[in-house]
Design a protein around this nucleic acid. Sequence first.
DNA 1: TCTGGGGTCCTAGGACCC
DNA 2: TCTGGGGTCCTAGGACCC
Length: 420
Amino acid sequence: MYALADCNNFFVSCERVFRPDLEGKPVVVLSGNDGCVVSRSNEAKALGIKMGVPLYQIQGLVDKEGVVCFSSNFSLYGDLSDRVMSIIRQHTSRFEQYSIDECFFNIDHIPADQQKAYCEQLVKAIRRGVGIPVSIGIASSKTLAKVASKYAKKYPGYHGVCEIRTEEQRLKALSTFEIGDVWGIGRRAKAKLQNAGISTALDFTEKPSSFAKGLLNKPGMLTWQELRGQDVINITELPMKQSITTSRTFANALSEQQLLEEQIANFCAHCARQLRTQQSVAQQLYVYAHTSAFRSDIEQHYLSELVTLPVATSNTQELISYALGAFRRAYRPGALYKKAGVVLLKIIPETAVVPDLFDTKDRAKDKRLQRVLDHIDDRHGKHAILLGSQLTSQQAVYKTDHKSPLYTTDLRDIITLKAT
DNA sequence: TCTGGGGTCCTAGGACCC
DNA sequence: TCTGGGGTCCTAGGACCC
């Protein structure tokens, strides 16, 4: 049997850990630049605030109902996520983190008739230890466990845990479960299924497998099997990332080359650090920047460059030099860039690097320097030390008016704050 | 006016091979 | 005028997830 643990309204719950006075009140967490709503408390959901809605569209409601808004604070969410995950990890032999707020884990070492009570204890332990409310679903496949967790979240009577164990439970659960809410059924698939007269998950499973395969191809077929209780979706335990992206939308569009280059350098440094954390190197680097698709009054421009590196690397200095070179080739003076990003691709383990016979770099030396720089950051806080290209203008290009003031240790933020 | 960020997998079609 | 067949690999784009 699988268990799926899912943190309720995760980002909002994280903010509430340090603001218990906000329990029972409508709270939302916003995306970058305070643009859209990305997490909502139950009270905010009850007010009709939809996931992903731009803040400016609900500003009236926010003011009228006293909805509390937070800018996103990912170092906080990541930290609390690690604590929740480490508690669960202690209670299982197999553990698969699926996202920042969800994980699958195996509970077969617990007798079947005690699994539900065991998970209820786990929910209590996480609430007590970290302060985050969690819902757990139990079933024989991951997709069914996801269904069960939604019921666990929806009905307080379950005390945070719902299991789909018997065939009777499965049929009952699926008969009232909307097809569009099934894991793996997105907008397009939902529309296709509804056109075929299917409205619940049960309707879907009662069709023959050829129907699922014909309409939705392989992914649809997997979902169909999973809903019937077969375990066919694999999620590996600690996958090495195949691509690493850092991208941002700017509060106001940028056109000045210097400002953009500083951003590209920062994105690159952030990607490279993640690359080293998983002991890997990238063989390709992709840089892009573009105008706002929402602006019909200006000419659209999409800049992009793909660079294949002569030798796979995770060195920040080296990656920045390639990224800036690529950017300079494609940069168009005068264009109003609203968003930019760096993507590292073709990632392989660092032990698999093929050296270049004509390489002029002293890679061993570069690596030693990089290690020292990372060590300084680890010891003294993020951005304790930076490359010159990352800190040229230091103009604020992002908006975070509602960031929770506590628990950030980013030294550059503090320096910028003092400078201002 | 204001509209997020970071991933994975699958598939169709083109390029290329013999 | 008529111009093969079968296979692999790669890539871009779509769909989906949180």
